[in-house]
């Protein structure tokens, strides 16, 4: 920092090697957070403008996800049930089993992709 403070103020001619220095200076300027003055009554004014008829809850709902998990569980149970029966060796039984299996895999993929890392 001391070296930096000792630098001459008059800008030096642009040299090819000064690219990094320019980039750093630009990034530093971009990272400088502007100071803002927030009115003391800002929150009160926002609240005063809210529509009165609708209370707000910040609690997120998970109805869709829960329904999906329930569906996946039901499918899994059905698959296990079908697998233990001798009727599952028939063409119809196999078709049902494969259909359920495909649905189960689809649900698991969808769930894992959707809820893996919320940003």
């Amino acid at each position: 920092m001391r070296d930096e403070a000792m630098k001459p103020v008059q800008p030096a001619p642009v040299a090819p090697g000064s690219f990094d220095a320019d980039e750093r200076r630009l990034v530093r300027a971009l990272e400088t957070v502007p100071a803002v003055t927030i009115p003391a009554d800002f929150v009160a004014r926002v609240v005063a403008r809210l529509p009165a008829e609708r209370p707000v809850s910040l609690r997120p709902t998970w109805y869709g996800r829960n329904a999906m998990l329930l569906g996946a569980a039901v499918l899994l149970v059905a698959l296990l049930g079908l697998a233990s029966r001798p009727s599952s060796q028939s063409v119809l039984g196999l078709a049902v089993e494969w259909t359920l299996c495909a649905q189960f895999v689809g649900l698991v993929f969808w769930l894992s992709a959707r809820y893996r890392n919320p940003v």
């Binding site: 927030i38 609240v47 209370p55 910040l58």
Partner: peptide
Amino acid sequence: MHVDLSFEQLVRDHQ
């Protein structure tokens, strides 16, 4: 006015 207190807090936290 019926406003969830957490909304006020949300405004305060993110203003």
